[in-house]
């Protein structure tokens, strides 16, 4: 079975994000970029599946400018077998991403798609679900555990108040959550091999998907700075403040 792992290039999670002076978006110039951490977890899960004999090929795919090839190489250095780069010069919205990925799935015919539950830049949390819907496949979302046997998979989802166990049929789209695994570091032998692994580039046009934006960004602003809290002396003062100042009770 082949596993497809879509990976997104985002601002590194250690970077303090700054809004552009003209409020048109966030500053990306000279900012360290990295693979979306949830997608790293997806790559890791695919590699583990391959190592346990449950998959025979792991293909990573990324959509974006030429620099996305660096992100793909990171996936290859972790151990993925092959990369696909879909060249796109501007930001692609989740529905268009899902449509592009659907085309890739049609070409590649994977048995499973592992993808991060969301990207840490826009936090949309839509692509996996939309992809499953477009394909008419089963989906397991926010997955923190998975077991595959034959054409069925049991996934564990973290829900309010506990863990939900769901059985889904394959092929499926599985969006992965933080506690599924701890992604490995790229290994030195894989880093050295990464450049020799195949990386195909496809243009958006070749896939015949309309990726023109449907949304208009009006303004991007920093969240309002939080003001310092206060300490109350006792419960009655707290209740008084909640009742008369905050007016929430």
């Amino acid at each position: 079975m082949k596993v497809l792992v879509p990976i997104k290039r985002v601002i590194d999670y250690n970077v303090k994000v700054r809004v552009k002076a003209d409020n048109s978006g966030v500053e990306l110039a000279n900012v360290k970029m990295a693979m979306n951490p949830f997608d790293e977890i997806a790559v890791e899960q695919a590699l583990r599946l391959k190592e346990s004999g449950g998959a025979d090929e792991v293909v990573v795919v990324s959509i974006g400018p030429s620099q996305n090839q660096e992100t793909i190489r990171t996936g290859l250095a972790m151990g993925a077998d092959r990369g696909i780069h879909i060249e796109a010069s501007h930001d692609i919205e989740p529905l268009a991403v899902a449509k592009l990925l659907k085309e890739v799935v049609t070409r590649e015919n994977p048995g499973l798609v592992f993808v991060g539950k969301q990207a840490i830049d826009d936090d949309c949390n839509q692509t996996g679900q939309m992809l499953a819907a477009l394909l008419g496949w089963a989906q397991g979302t926010f997955v923190s555990g998975i077991e595959i046997s034959g054409d069925k998979a049991t996934v564990i989802r973290e829900v309010d108040g506990g863990l939900e166990h769901l059985a889904i049929s394959m092929p499926a789209v599985v969006t992965v959550d933080l506690r599924l695994n701890e992604p490995r570091y790229a290994s030195l032998p894989n880093i050295m091999k990464a450049k020799k692994k195949p990386l195909d580039s496809i243009s958006v046009e070749e896939l015949g998907v309309d990726v023109s934006p449907r949304l208009t960004v009006i303004k991007v602003e920093e969240p309002e700075a939080r003001s310092a809290g206060i300490k109350v002396a006792d419960v009655s003062e707290l209740v008084n403040k909640l009742k008369n100042e905050a007016k929430v009770i």
Binding site: N14, E70, R73, T74, A77, Y185, A186, I191, A194, K195
Partner: peptide, 18 residues
């Protein structure tokens, strides 16, 4: 730096930080 060298640097830095 070559892509391999960039990956060596980012991997080792990430290891040291983490």
């Amino acid at each position: 730096l070559s892509e391999e060298q960039e990956l060596i640097v980012s991997t080792v830095r990430s290891f040291v930080e983490t």
